[in-house]
Write a protein that binds this DNA or RNA. Sequence first.
DNA 1: GACTTATGAATGAACG
DNA 2: CGTTCATTCATAAGTC
Lengths: 184, 184
Amino acid sequence: MEEGMSGFCIKAGSVRGNGGCGGGGNRGGTGTKCGRWNPTTEQVKVLTDLFRSGLRTPSTDQIQKISSQLSFYGKIESKNVFYWFQNHKARERQKRRRVSIDEKDFILREEKNSYPKDYGEINQVSEPERVIETLQLFPINSFGESESERLRFHANECKETTAFPYAIDTGMDHPPLDLRLSFL
Amino acid sequence: MEEGMSGFCIKAGSVRGNGGCGGGGNRGGTGTKCGRWNPTTEQVKVLTDLFRSGLRTPSTDQIQKISSQLSFYGKIESKNVFYWFQNHKARERQKRRRVSIDEKDFILREEKNSYPKDYGEINQVSEPERVIETLQLFPINSFGESESERLRFHANECKETTAFPYAIDTGMDHPPLDLRLSFL
DNA sequence: GACTTATGAATGAACG
DNA sequence: CGTTCATTCATAAGTC
């Protein structure tokens, strides 16, 4: 229903429901909509490995090749690869930014609440150097459980804990809501 | 993947009932480890209040400030605030579009009132127009973040209809990444 | 206790 | 490139 996709529709037909959706009928999930690309785990793994290897903005040529290879695992188009890298890169930065702020906040009030919160989503990747190594992708039989690195170390030099004008109000009571928000 | 999923389970099989939460069947009580953010009533109230006041898409800076303040009421992260507004806005729009569809019965083709898009960007709520008042967004601390010049040498302009913009190619040196992808 | 609802979280796609 | 939108998944809370 409601075909009003913003902008343009990727696929001409965008076969809804049971319409073929290409041969790579992956995604055993609930609704196998073919509206948008739904990467398989293998595809995600390869893309992630590429990203982790330092590839951030693949060229058109690279995109084509990656897409071509990934099509082995399922239906995929070049633009999917393009978007994937764009999103992945952007979100990494975005997330990193937010987490940093949270950490700053955490430090600001660690005196009161000092419990080891597991920032399980912090990863270093500060400067993904081009690791010139041959990662063994291509898991024909590997089920991609190689998350051998769960390094979630929390080592980063927090910038300056600049004195926040709106520092933590030590009221410690349920303060008036609106007043606290005037800082916005 | 380890970028930003706080230990979540990728929707591989997407089998309903999948525990998710990273394999470890922890969980059970109040959010502690793998649970998702469970906003307190105070937090919800504040967020709702902000939303009602007209705030739809807080900037990163605002998100951080809101998060900082809301952390007084309990554990919260910036991304929680971010997601909250995204979801809240999207769901209101979703419901609103539902109504819209219903009433487009006659509006159906009011050509003269053509949006730029199908639904356009309805940034403001149509009903509660009482724009921000107390929580007006004035940055009291403009730490040089006021003029964030965006150096956008967007030489890419051609949004060809058939092709998506394979934008920038930074010509990044691409290392041999994998056996199959070494052709890159 | 299973079912439904509400909503947090994630991400593909696209805009400016 | 940062931001925004739409859709979907996952899960806590609410209901019967």
